[in-house]
Amino acid sequence: VLVLDVEHHANLLPWVHAARARHRTTILPVAVTVAATLAALRAELAANEYALVTVTGASNVTGEALPLDDVVAAAHQAGARVAVDGAQLVPHRGFSLAATGADYVAFSGHKTYAPFGAGALVGRRDWLDAGAPYLAGGGAVRDVRPDRTLWQPAPARHEAGSPNVMGAVALAKGCKTLVALPAGALTTHQESLRSRRVAGLEALPGVRVLRVWPDSVDPVGVVSFAVADLDPGLVAAVLSAEHGIGVRDGRFCAHPLLAHLSASDGAVRASVGVGTTSEAVDRLVTALGRLLVEGPAAEYTVVDGCWTVADDPRPLLDVPGLDHLAATAAAACGPAV
Rank of each mutant, 00 (worst) to 15 (best):
V337R: 09
S264R: 10
D231V: 01
P313C: 12
V122G: 07
G117W: 07
L121Y: 14
I245T: 05
A310G: 00
R157H: 11
A329Y: 14
L316M: 15
A254Y: 08
A326E: 09
L201F: 04
E279I: 12
G94D: 05
R283K: 13
H9K: 13
G221P: 11
E191N: 15
L52H: 09
E191W: 13
G250Y: 05
L291W: 12
R248H: 04
R194Y: 08
L52T: 04
V61W: 02
K111H: 15
A10L: 12
E44I: 00
P219T: 02
A156S: 10
A172L: 14
V82W: 07
V165D: 12
D70E: 15
V32Y: 06
V212F: 00
H260G: 03
A102M: 11
I245R: 03
A226V: 03
A237C: 12
Y300F: 15
G137E: 07
G161R: 06
L89Y: 05
V281Q: 08
A199Y: 08
Y50D: 00
F225P: 00
L4N: 01
R194E: 03
A259C: 07
G206F: 13
L288V: 06
Y50E: 02
E159C: 14
V212N: 00
L68P: 03
L38A: 02
V105G: 01
G123Y: 07
A65I: 03
A10Y: 13
Y104G: 00
A58Y: 06
H255L: 15
A270K: 01
F252H: 07
R22P: 03
L230Y: 14
L288Y: 13
C253I: 02
S96T: 11
G266W: 09
V55F: 04
D265C: 09
S271D: 08
L97C: 06
A18S: 10
P182T: 11
A130Y: 06
G295C: 10
D218G: 11
V72P: 03
A65R: 03
L230S: 00
D312V: 10
D311R: 14
R124E: 15
A136W: 10
D5I: 04
D231C: 06
L135G: 07
L89T: 04
L13R: 08
H189W: 10
A73K: 09
V238N: 05
G138N: 08
A114E: 01
A270Q: 02
A114P: 06
A83L: 15
A270W: 03
L317T: 04
L288T: 03
V169T: 08
T54R: 04
G119E: 12
F225C: 01
R157C: 10
V6K: 02
D229P: 06
T25V: 14
A199K: 14
G246E: 12
A106N: 08
A74Q: 02
V223L: 08
H23Y: 11
V212G: 00
V337P: 09
L41Y: 07
A47E: 14
L291D: 05
V122M: 13
V61D: 00
I27D: 01
G295F: 12
V179E: 14
T276H: 06
A47K: 12
T56I: 06
H9N: 14
L97T: 00
